[in-house]
């Protein structure tokens, strides 16, 4: 691993106001992402795992600035020459994505792209596959029409839609879900980004085509040197795709470690519960079942003590519900956990 991460996220927060009326002041906020920090090395992929509503997608959208963070900083590493060309100010070789605006933000989007969850809704039904894949090139003003055509054909070939000319001028509704997701991948990679956020790209696909798409994403990552932030609720998918996994619960990262380390030695009670819910295809296998009570508590103005306290099977009264939410601490070998009891 190199020492300089590609992406550094520090204390990222996003609060959504809950409006109660036109003229009343809002006092309530949904703490969708609450003080999240992590970093991603070049060519490394980080899996963001958690149940629905825990803020995974919001984190992804913050990183591509579809949303503006309430607080915190997102650093993205950039070469000095590139930065000068694009009129971006660097701090120690990093650009602060959270403060980008206008022209600089548009230029920044050449480096970071996103793959969306729903292959059926993420493409304009009135555009051809060519228009969809070439869109980033067109809005960024890269290449002539001929060059774009050539590049789209190449990209379609890379994602396994061959021969490209038979796909280029068809409409999304003429393609299957797996093919559409390949088109989505082609669109994300067409301007050579170094960092791609994949928001559950395989969750809406049939199991039979899922592995094909995952395999493709890995091949392309190796080939073009791409880092992924892979958002998923499926630990098996995360294990297949990611070098590191971060587990999120109610807007906070509760545990983060190398994939195998996290799966074999989970430390946080929530991670343990998640892992015990993964089915194992062996009827005789006996394992420790960890029950957690209730369901996710509300993210609206959550208490300042440990977010998991209400559901935690090992929580200690007088400690976990008195002290602040535990900080994410290194428990050795890059295994980070946020729990008072570990």
């Amino acid at each position: 691993m190199s020492f300089q991460p590609l992406v550094k996220v520090e204390g990222l927060k996003k609060y959504f106001p809950v409006s109660k009326g036109l003229f009343r002041k809002t006092h309530d906020y949904i703490h969708a992402v609450d003080d999240v920090s992590f970093s991603i090395q070049p060519r490394e992929s980080l899996g963001l795992v958690g149940e629905s509503g825990c803020g995974k997608t919001t984190t992804g959208k913050l990183l591509v600035r579809l949303l503006t963070p309430t607080a915190g900083r997102i650093f993205f590493r950039m070469e000095e020459e590139e930065a000068r060309e694009e009129g971006v100010r660097l701090e120690d070789g990093y650009v602060d994505v959270a403060t980008l605006k206008g022209r600089a933000l548009k230029n920044f989007r050449r480096h970071v792209q996103m793959i969306f969850q729903d292959p059926y809704e993420s493409m304009n039904p009135r555009l051809t596959i060519y228009d969809i894949v070439a869109e980033p090139m067109a809005v960024q003003g890269i290449g002539s029409v001929m060059e774009r055509e050539q590049r789209v054909a190449e990209m379609l070939q890379h994602v396994g839609l061959t021969p490209p000319e038979s796909f280029m001028f068809r409409y999304p509704h003429e393609l299957s879900g797996g093919q559409r997701q390949r088109v989505a991948i082609a669109r994300a990679l067409i301007i050579n980004p170094t960092f791609v956020i994949a928001d559950e790209p395989t969750s809406m696909l049939d199991v039979s085509v899922r592995t094909g798409v995952m395999q493709l994403m890995q091949d392309l990552a190796d080939r073009f040197g791409i880092s992924y932030l892979y958002i998923t609720h499926d630990l098996a998918v995360a294990r297949y795709m990611c070098d590191k996994i971060a587990v999120m619960y109610l807007g906070k990262i509760v545990e983060m470690a190398e994939t195998e380390e996290l799966l074999h030695h989970p430390l946080h009670p929530y991670t343990k519960a998640l892992l015990s819910a993964v089915p194992i295809p062996d009827p005789t296998y006996k394992r420790e079942v960890i029950e957690i009570r209730g369901s996710v508590s509300t993210p609206i103005n959550p208490p300042s003590y440990c977010r998991f306290y209400n559901r935690c099977p090992v929580a200690k009264e007088g400690l976990c519900n008195v002290q602040e939410h535990p900080p994410l601490e290194d428990k050795g070998g890059g295994h980070y956990v946020a729990c008072h009891l570990v």
Partner: peptide, 16 residues
């Protein structure tokens, strides 16, 4: 629709 978000991530402005 997500394709609006996709267009924005690609760098598309309001007019686009």
């Amino acid at each position: 629709k997500p394709y609006i978000e996709a267009a924005r991530v690609a760098g598309g402005g309001d007019w686009h």
